[in-house]
């Protein structure tokens, strides 16, 4: 409130900061929580990339059974305290199979983050192409694409993914399949945003001026529109990413997503469902990891949104209103 009133009523407060990347970074850094989140995300990505290395340091791999570490009398509860945590098995072992939990967690990060990332990229690509085409195309193109978008909105990701998993042959690699399905179903939000922004931008005078300069449509789209679309698209993509992680985890949790022996956090949770009384760490570790990852990405998304928000940006950049500047 304070800020808005000030800037609206007093052109004085609207000191223009340096433009472009440097001010973006400054604003991003100003949000400490966003920085912490970015560090967490970076760590998680690093863990995922270095999974074989980390498992190698521990001296384990994610798929070897250790029957000697679980108690066959109780149906496979890990021996030892806290789910069998020891110097060899840093996070203990999986109930029933005795597979090393640490190795499965770090390899699971690969799957969870990788699938979500691939799905997000697909969503962004389809969304931007469809949204741009609808925003720039003529009435007919816009109508047709908007209807298609409406249909896609009506497809609940979970339900469609479940349905699709039912008909695709079992030997098709699951991570790829999930990424493709989620990508194909979840792009409507981005395309709607891109279309709306394109329409708004198209009516701006500097685009009209570019037309009068004699440029063709493609060049105008590239020079005048695309740069202005980057901010909302990036913002939305960062917010989509955690959602995609949850979808993958949910599918795997339901037992129709990533299949063992490939590890994924959601699938570990699903197994843990039956073991939580005997081996609580087996449940808590993947639950905590999903929580931290999604939280970090959400906070980061907030930070990026704040740093890139066109309203914030334009307010900081330009202190004049549309109508006659009447303020003292």
């Amino acid at each position: 409130m304070a800020e808005a009133l000030l800037v609206k009523e007093a052109g004085v407060a609207a000191a223009a900061p340096a433009s472009g990347a440097s001010s973006f970074r400054r604003r991003l850094r100003a949000r400490r929580s966003a920085v912490v989140a970015a560090v967490v995300v970076a760590l998680l990505v690093l863990v995922a990339l270095a999974a074989p290395l980390l498992a190698g340091i521990e001296g384990q791999d994610p798929t070897t059974y250790h029957a000697n570490l679980v108690d066959s009398a109780t149906g496979g509860v890990p021996l030892g305290s806290f789910g069998g945590i020891s110097a060899e098995h840093w996070l203990g072992v999986e109930p029933l199979t005795g597979r090393d939990l640490f190795a499965r967690v770090v390899y699971g990060a690969r799957v969870s983050l990788g699938v979500a990332l691939a799905a997000t990229l697909l969503q962004v690509i389809i969304g931007v192409v469809v949204g741009l085409a609808a925003g720039l195309g003529n009435r007919f193109v816009d109508q047709a694409l908007s209807r298609v978008t409406d249909i896609v909105v009506a497809l609940p990701v979970m339900v469609i993914a479940l349905g699709a998993l039912a008909v695709v042959p079992a030997d098709f690699p699951r991570p790829v399949l999930i990424a493709v399905i989620v990508g194909l179903v979840g792009w409507s939000g981005i395309s709607k945003i891109v279309r709306a922004r394109t329409l708004a931008l198209k009516s701006l005078d500097h685009v009209a001026a570019a037309r009068l300069s004699g440029w063709g449509g493609l060049r105008i789209a590239r020079r005048e529109l695309l740069p202005a679309l980057a901010a909302p698209v990036i913002t939305y993509a960062v917010l989509l990413f955690p959602g995609n992680i949850v979808v993958e985890a949910a599918l795997s949790f339901l037992g129709v997503g990533i299949k063992p022996p490939t590890p994924s956090w959601g699938q570990m949770l699903s197994d843990a469902d039956t073991w939580y009384q005997a081996a609580p760490t087996y449940l808590l570790i993947p639950a905590l990891l999903i929580f931290i990852t999604v939280l970090a990405l959400t906070v980061l998304g907030e930070g990026v949104r704040n740093a890139l928000d066109p309203r914030v940006a334009s307010r900081l950049r330009i202190g004049t209103g549309r109508k006659k500047e009447a303020g003292g």
Binding site: V246, A250, F253, L269, L283, F291, L295, T298, V299
Partner: peptide, 15 residues
């Protein structure tokens, strides 16, 4: 609220 946004329903339910 942020924590709520970040927690999948099956995690909350399980807990």
């Amino acid at each position: 609220t942020l924590a709520g946004m970040a927690t999948p329903v099956f995690v909350v339910g399980l807990l």
